[in-house]
């Protein structure tokens, strides 16, 4: 993976995961899961704005805004889907506030670099790959 394109926050997250034993990586993912911000109220009444991530086993919806040259990412997933919430939270924290180009430049295989294959399984990590791809597509559509 080309490191130069990786935003600082995502690089930090990756390093944090890789510094842990495989078992403890799950705990960190759980922390991310608990940190996923609530959807702003203006979206709560507009479910049609949210795009479902079909690659994820659990229902997860996301929506990207580009405002004043900055990307704002919103995601929501049920409490009963902590893994999916964790993936969404990593991306929200890592991408929010970046320029559209920075988001588009994030390597598509970033999810595979977190060392979660063993802790979570490669199949489940694919859900995060799907999320990232959909975020990038929405950013591109909203005029990078």
């Amino acid at each position: 993976m080309d490191d130069t394109a990786l935003p600082d926050r995502l690089a930090e997250t990756r390093d944090d995961f890789l510094a842990l034993e495989v078992k403890d990586r799950l705990q960190l993912l759980l922390e991310f899961s608990n940190e996923l911000p609530e959807l702003p109220e203006r979206y709560a009444d507009h479910p049609e704005l949210l795009e479902r991530v079909e690659e994820c086993q659990s229902p997860v919806y996301l929506f990207v805004e580009v405002d004043d040259g900055r990307v704002h990412l919103h995601a929501t997933a049920p409490r009963e889907s902590p893994t999916t919430r964790g993936f969404a939270s990593i991306l929200v924290q890592g991408l929010d506030g970046l320029t559209p180009q920075k988001v588009l430049d994030v390597p598509a295989d970033y999810p595979q670099s977190l060392g979660l294959g063993q802790a979570v399984s490669p199949l489940r990590v694919r859900g995060m790959t799907g999320m990232l791809a959909r975020i990038k597509r929405q950013v591109a559509e909203r005029g990078a």
């Binding site: 799950l26 705990q27 993912l29 759980l30 899961s33 086993q57 659990s58 409490r79 009963e80 889907s81 902590p82 893994t83 999916t84 964790g86 802790a119 979570v120 399984s121 489940r124």
Partner: peptide, 9 residues
Amino acid sequence: DEDVLLYEI
């Protein structure tokens, strides 16, 4: 479970 973290919550 299907979700690997569900037990933890």
